[in-house]
Design a protein around this nucleic acid. Structure first.
Length: 563
RNA sequence: GCCCCCGUAGCUCAAUUGGAUAGAGCGUUUGGUUGCGGACCAAAAGGUUUCAGGUUCAAAUCCUGACGGGGGUACCA
């Protein structure tokens, strides 16, 4: 079930008003533009307003106020509209019908978890690829924002009418195989008193030692006795599989689950890279010099390496670059698996790679506009007022799991979604840990549990929670304010999905919770002396609880019955 | 040098993407429950949206240029 956002319904009515004004000869013929409609910020401007007549002034060479006054009477009657008014300098304002609004409480309650769904996506098939942290070490706090944004974005797109698949890209090819395997193998050798030198660019973290000890326990001395290169490779893949198990488990604790895990090394095993290379060569996009194979494209200032020279990188498996894999991957996503769109959730530190991947798409005949890059700014982790530097290769980092265990998944998810992706995020560990009860997530969750508490109370008082009251009794201004806010969810989801901006949901959740608290303050819900009104307000409370739960679930946050 | 992001209340950030009188939280001050969960609510104070131009009926939002902060610019991953 989908809902047409209220503002779009109103836009249609205003558009109809323009057409009728033309048909009646009150306005001359002209192409009717898009009719923008936005919620009014002030009560005396009605509930929604449109500035469409302001833009028509030039075309019609008439005063915008006069145009608005001409159009307003032609706006069709509707059960949802109480009044259409005009305000200087030419706004058309719409006041919603209070009886209609009150009835929407029933509609919203009946819609349940489908309330807010819109059809913006028109069943477009979209793949959201996110996290995709290298399987060479525990997932860090640095990936938390990526994980949360990607998952919430996927949820928002689902609610927005897209067909969505969540995918994790496993970077298990290239030079890191050798250095990661070599790191484990060196520590593994230590377990047996043997000595294998630690790789120059190895992974120094304690988790490597732990992995090595596990391997020593399960496999014995086996890897000391076989061919060294073979051992490094096998140990690397074994280690990456273990790390991935941990990553999957960590992400599960953040309520994140992927539909698919795509392995980079399979592109080479499947022969896809050779195929892409042929395609690029045929198009004249490949050149060779300095012993390397380069991608050249008129849109790029510099050539980009596809295959490194053997002199620089002796390891044959380490020669193809990320770009080489990226060509395969975009083909895999958009041609082989035929997604309409591929969304890449990337940290802003990778923004420089965007033009190369787009050029590569163009070069193999894929429309670059089908690749959508969602770039979020970096997270700075603060502890004791100081920045915690995170680097996987230095072994000095805070793992996502530590953060989840300390703070819990809900505050992480909520806090990571309170800002637009364009701003850097300071994540204060001390604040998150020591003062977590001040986190805004609890404000929203509290509204939900408060309703649950009221419903329990109502049941104790003998009110059947499943018996619907008469919404016509909902006439108090704060009751209507709460309904207004609930009615806004479809357009919030619409905006969030169209703009790939899931942070709108946290803002909305907070506003919705505030509206419930205001209602709770002004209107006593359970009152044995007024059973009909009680039933009506229980209906409203249940609808509010349902919408709060819906939004929290979209964000990926639990909606508890008790706290 | 070049490219990308940011600059809004004391602090951290919103602003349905170009609309009307720019809003929340935290902090500060002052109030509120012989009422369903006070993890709540109300009021006050706090603004030349960094600066200077420009486009537009209309700019926090778009363009140009400063200034300040962050990131990127490897045959790294």
């Amino acid at each position: 079930m989908t809902n047409l956002p209220l503002r779009e319904q109103l836009a249609e009515l205003i558009r109809a008003g323009l057409e009728r004004a033309q048909a009646a000869g009150d306005l001359p013929a002209f192409d009717i533009p898009d009719v923008p409609v936005a919620p009014s910020r002030h009560a005396n401007h009605g509930d929604y307003g449109s500035p469409v007549c302001l833009g028509l002034a030039r075309v019609l060479r008439r005063a915008p106020l006069h145009i608005a006054e001409t159009v307003a009477p032609h706006v069709p009657e509707s059960e949802m509209i109480a009044e259409v008014t005009v305000a200087p300098p030419g706004f058309i304002n719409v006041a919603l019908d209070q009886g209609w609004m009150a009835r929407q409480a029933s509609v919203i309650l009946a819609a349940g978890e489908t309330w807010g769904n819109v059809a913006a996506g028109a069943s477009t098939r979209v793949q959201v690829e996110f996290v995709s942290a290298n399987p060479t070490g525990p997932i860090t706090v640095g990936s938390a924002r990526n994980a949360v944004i990607g998952d919430a974005l996927a949820s928002v797109l689902e609610a927005g009418g897209y067909e969505v698949a969540r995918e994790y890209y496993v970077n298990d090819a290239g030079a890191k195989v050798r250095s990661f395997g070599g790191s484990i193998l060196s520590r593994y050798a230590d377990c047996f008193g043997a000595s294998i030198p630690f790789p120059e660019k190895g992974y120094p973290g304690d988790y490597v030692t732990t992995l090595a000890e596990r391997l020593a326990e399960s496999a014995g001395r086996r890897y000391l006795d076989i061919d060294r290169d073979q051992a490094v490779r096998e140990v690397a893949y074994w280690g990456m599989a273990r790390v991935l198990e941990q990553i999957e488990d960590d992400l599960a604790h953040l309520h994140i689950h992927f539909d698919t895990w795509r392995h980079e090394k399979d592109f080479y095993a499947e022969g896809l890279f050779d195929e892409m290379l042929d395609k690029l060569r045929a198009g004249g996009y490949v050149t060779e010099y300095d012993g390397a194979t380069w991608f050249q494209h008129p849109d790029l200032e510099k050539d980009a390496v596809l295959i490194r020279s053997a002199e620089v990188v002796p390891d044959p498996e380490g020669r193809p670059t990320y770009l080489a894999s990226d060509v395969c991957y975009l083909w895999d996503k958009l041609i082989q698996r035929a997604f309409d769109r591929a969304i890449y959730v990337w940290g802003a530190d990778h923004h420089g790679d965007v033009p190369r991947v787009q050029a590569a798409a163009q070069a193999v005949g894929v429309d670059p506009d089908r690749l959508i890059f969602v770039l979020y700014q970096m997270v700075t982790l603060m502890r004791g007022g100081e920045e915690v530097r995170m680097s996987k290769s230095s072994g000095d980092f805070v793992t996502l799991r530590e953060l989840i265990d300390e703070v819990g998944p809900d505050p992480i998810r909520f806090m990571m979604l309170t800002r637009t992706m364009d701003v850097t995020l300071d994540f204060d560990l001390d604040l998150a840990v020591e003062q977590s009860d001040r986190n805004p997530v609890y404000y929203v969750q509290y509204a939900h549990t408060r309703i649950a508490g009221v419903l329990r109370k109502a049941a104790e008082e003998g009110f059947d929670p499943q018996t619907d009251g008469d919404p016509a009794l909902l006439t108090h201004p704060t009751e209507l304010d709460l309904i207004r806010k609930m009615l806004a969810l479809p357009e919030i989801i619409d905006v969030a999905a169209r703009n790939l901006a899931p942070h709108h949901l946290t803002t909305y959740a907070t506003e919705l919770a505030a509206q419930f608290h205001a209602f709770y303050r002004d209107c006593r819900i359970v009152d044995a002396a007024a059973p009909e009104l009680t039933r009506a307000r229980l209906l409203l409370a249940r609808a509010a609880k349902s919408v709060l739960a819906r939004v929290l679930h979209l964000i990926g946050v639990d909606a508890p019955e008790r706290m």
